[in-house]
Amino acid sequence: CSPQQTETADLPVGNSLDAGSLQLVSQLKNPSGSCSVDVSVMWWEEAGLREPCVVTACEYVVSLWKHVDPCQWEKTQTWTFAEVPVLQIVPVPDVYNLVFVALGNLEIREIRALSCSSDDGGEKQQLLRSGTVRAVLGLPRRRLVSSGGGGGAGCDQQVEVVTLAEGAGGKEKQFLMSPEETILTFAELQGMQEALLGSTAGNSFVIWNLKTGQLLKKMSIDNSYQATVCHKAYSEMGLLFVVLSHPCAKQTESWGSPAFELVVINPKTTLSAGMMRYCLPPGQAGRFLEGDVKDHFAAAVLTSGTVAIWDLLLGHCTVLAPPSSNQSWSFVKWSGTDSHLLAGQKDGNIFIYRYS
């Protein structure tokens, strides 16, 4: 499919840094016009052929889109919800023909697995967890970790890992030791299948051993931000590197609030230090609203309605994509299957870009 449009980085003239570009490769138009909340790419198998499909979530409808030709997508399946709206799609690696969604109003009340009936192809739903859920993450090897329940902290909080059996049916449940603080987000520790990282409402990180369920360490980070989101974590040379964001941060006068930050922690001593702050180029307004990190690329929607991309290795912003067709961007997701970026607008339209 030949690119329909090219949007290059709008960096200040004279900036010597390398710029990236976004090429629009296709668009998913939402005829209903209802509010779009999330998008994801997942694998779907039919007649022995496994292909990447796009899953979109509007308020009460989740849709599966398949390729009909290189530029055309067709909606082939929908799941509808009568009472509780969809908050997010939960991608789970290594899983196909299954979509996981979190439903709720202000906070997650249910996690459901969506599939198709093998008899007539009709929609099927399976309730995986109900009650207040504060954090959820899909993990490699068909696992889904979530936390919530009770008042959220202390012994009321339950942290559980569900391992999904092949097919939509059986599942195995395991509990992890809960920290005393409410867990806000989870992040897998790349390259360490048995380790899991979490951020807490008390501005700390916690590490679990997923095999034993042990809570290994609580590490406080030295910054003043609240509600830290961890997007990516990896261990190198005995140290823990975490890419995080602060969606609730207020802009400071001196240097603005960074969209993303790289923090290094020694898990043995719990001492930490800030390594890198990923800020907007000078003169650009807006602060982080929501974002996604894949490999060494971070994408964010800013309060200005613009999408920004950072190369975490180079340390700077490579693309600024302003609102398209006078519609602010509302969310961005990296495709888990290739180097594509999916950007959504509130009117339900999704744009698929190739990032280079």
Partner: peptide
């Protein structure tokens, strides 16, 4: 940042913390 500011580093931190943490 200076690595020395983070204290002694262990390459086997995950195994060591797992053996020290309560079961």
């Amino acid at each position: 940042c200076n690595k020395a500011d983070l204290g002694p580093i262990s390459l086997n931190w995950f195994e060591e913390l797992s053996s020290e943490a309560p079961p």
